[in-house]
Design a binder for these strands. Structure first.
Length: 422
RNA sequence: GUGGGUGUAGCUCAGUUUGGUUAGAGCGCCAGGUUGUGGCCCUGGAGGUCGCGGGUUCGAAUCCCGUCAUCCACCCCA
């Protein structure tokens, strides 16, 4: 049997309702904040991600789905592992920053990373991505954070925690990284093997090491908050002041470092314990150098990405939804002809109507109508056919009455309207 | 890439320790109990290469080896 490939999965009809809820919440809420949807291709030139995300990151070094195009030059293509790079490319390519007075966009869609699958982690996964460009002031950081939290609440997620940090900028971070590295070298022998390696490759990552024996050392390391330059310190202070003003609770963590190279200043993450080890639902931050690094103008940016699989796992299940309003149950072939004619009238009137295509007994048709959540079942057998009427059963009250064939569509529409209004 | 758990009916699982008739249950599905009426109940039915391959044995779902899949964790990340 051919099965879906490792790390991919089918979102089956029973599950799709939850996906629709989070998608609709996104469209609705984001537009209230002035964000508009953008749709970029799911594959790009490999170069875009290598330059944008950082060639030394795990994503680029070993997790990308990269393949040659079928052209003479053998252009290298990559399925997007995240959304920001593609969006930035589009912003630059179409000069959006020159024409859009408030460049605020969001995107929904699949991303691809070749990682070992785990709880809430797939090789094809879906993200909601929100980005704002060209705004320097800390208030946009706060707006983005508020939007993220509003969105999670709109989706019905109640148990979550906001974690906040500042990772400095191109002026102050490199110096801090060196300070950190020196401090780590002093403890080298007592660190776990991974952290000894990270000390040289990416010292910031040592900060979120989970090995218990390393924790005491990590706590004693110099903190980025003490090494920010004046501008970064002021920026972060204002972000915190505004979060306080808006009464948005958060936990400060000098150990929150983001995985992608492009982040500057404000970084944040929302976690939920219900997700297991993959506890991050949403992560984001500012990336003031990225647009320029990708060949655009010196345009600041800030945004977040949210894992939709993880979100869907967390939100309360919706009610079992009815799949039809009216079910036409027929017992003789000529009645079936009437059903075929009338079902189209009903559908044009917006009524969800189904018939049984298997010509089974009435009991079995009733059963099916019930399972589909039909509110009304219109029955036509020999008796009704003779009088040119339907017996219409209201499945919630178990009452029924006879309605002439020509009036059936109108009758059900009427009933449906009455219910919707009531 | 590394470590561990689990693979038996459409789904959730029992049976594996101590090898032994036609491999079970619940749910779901189909039919009947009602000459033309759903839910609840009762009865019956369909549905299984016991992940796959090899080995041990008179005999393997059960023991051994290999392999694949899947889940969880590490690395890393949404």
């Amino acid at each position: 049997m051919i099965k879906s490939i490792k790390g991919t999965r089918d979102i089956l009809p029973d599950e799709v309702g939850a996906w629709h809820r989070v998608e609709q919440a996104a469209h609705q809420l984001f537009s209230r904040y002035g964000y508009r949807e953008i749709r970029t291709p799911i594959f790009e030139e490999t170069q875009l991600f290598a330059r944008g995300i950082g060639a030394d990151t795990d994503i680029v070094a070993k997790e990308m789905y990269t393949f040659p195009d079928r052209d003479e030059e053998k252009t290298s293509l990559t399925l997007r592992p995240e959304a920001t790079a593609g969006i930035v490319r589009a912003v630059i390519e179409h000069n959006l920053y020159q024409t859009d007075p408030a460049l605020k966009v969001y995107a929904l869609g699949p991303m691809f990373r070749r990682e070992r699958p785990q709880k809430g982690r797939y090789r094809q996964f879906h993200q909601v991505d929100v980005e704002a460009f060209g705004m320097e002031r800390p208030s946009i950081d706060v707006e983005i954070i508020q939007l993220a939290l509003d969105y999670l609440r709109a989706c019905g997620l109640t148990e979550s925690q906001l974690i906040l940090n500042s990772v400095g900028d191109a002026k102050c971070r490199p110096a801090y990284v060196e300070t950190l590295r020196s401090a780590l070298r002093a403890h080298k022998d007592r660190l776990c093997a991974d952290c000894q390696r990270r000390t040289e490759t990416n010292p910031l990552r040592v900060l979120d090491c989970k090995v218990p024996e390393d924790q005491a050392i990590i706590e004693s390391l110099p903190k980025i908050s003490d090494h920010l330059c004046a501008e970064c310190r002021d920026h972060f202070a204002e972000v915190r002041r505004e979060l306080g003003l808006l009464e948005i609770p958060y936990e400060l963590s000098h150990r929150l470092v983001r995985g992608l190279d492009y982040y500057t200043r404000t970084t944040f993450e929302v976690t939920s314990a219900a997700l297991g080890a993959q506890n991050s639902v949403l992560g984001g931050g500012r990336y003031d150098g990225l647009v320029r690094d990708l060949g655009g103008p010196d345009l600041s940016g800030i945004g977040f990405a949210l894992g939709m699989e993880r979100l869907v796992m967390l939100i309360p299940p919706g009610p079992q939804e009815s799949r039809c309003d009216a079910f036409l149950a027929v017992l003789v072939p000529r009645a079936f002809d009437r059903a075929l004619l009338i079902q189209h009238d009903l559908r044009e009137a917006g009524v969800r109507v189904l018939v049984d295509h298997e010509a089974r007994g009435l009991k079995s048709q009733m059963k099916k109508a019930d399972k589909l959540g039909a509110r009304y079942v219109a029955i036509m057998g020999e008796d009704e056919l003779a009088d040119d009427v339907w017996t219409v059963r209201d499945m919630t009250t178990s009452t029924q009455e006879r309605v002439s064939d020509v009036k059936l569509a109108e009758y059900i529409e009427e009933k449906m309207r009455g219910r919707d209004a009531g």
